[in-house]
Amino acid sequence: MRIGFLFALLLISAFYTYVAFVELSFLTVSGRLGPGFFPRLIGVGLILLCLVSLPQDLRRMRLDDVMTGYWSVIAMMALLSGGLVMLFSIVGGTLAMAIFLLVTLSILNRGHHLQNLAIAVLLPAAIYYLFDVWLNASMPEGMISLPI
C-alpha cells in the first residue's frame, strides 16, 4: 500500500508539473518571473523526490507492508463521515448530525441504546444552539430542513 500511495503521488506530481510547464509561463511579458516559475520548481522537486523514494519503498514493501489495523472500522467511519457531508445538503445540518451520531454510535457503542439516543439528540441540539442561535454562524440548510 505504501508503494501505491507514493505512486499515486508521483502521478499527481507529473500532472501538476505538466500543467505548470504547458499552461503557465515562466516569465511575464515584462520579463519578470511569471506564474509558472514557482510551480515548475515545486513540480520538478516532487517528481525527483518521489523517484528517489521509490526504490526505498520497494525494499520496504516486502518487509513491513503487512498492515494489520482495524481497516473495516476505518472504512466504515470514512463511509459514514462522507455520508454526513452528503446528508448536509439533503436534510440540513442538525438532522444530519443526529442521524450520523445515532447510526455511528449504534455500531461502535452497541447495547447502550439510551446513551446513544441521548447523545444523538443532545449534541446536535447543543451545536445548533451554539452556531445558529448564539453565534449566528452558518449551518447547512438541506432540501428537507427541520421546522426550527
Partner: peptide
C-alpha cells in the same frame, strides 16, 4: 470511551469546517 468520543469529534470537525465560509 473513544468509541463515544470519536463520532462527536467527526461532527464537530464537519460542522466547524462548513461554518467558516458556509461551503459544502
Amino acid at each position: 470511551p473513544y468509541r463515544v468520543l470519536a463520532p462527536a469529534v467527526v461532527v464537530v470537525c464537519t460542522i466547524g469546517t462548513f461554518s467558516v465560509h458556509g461551503s459544502i
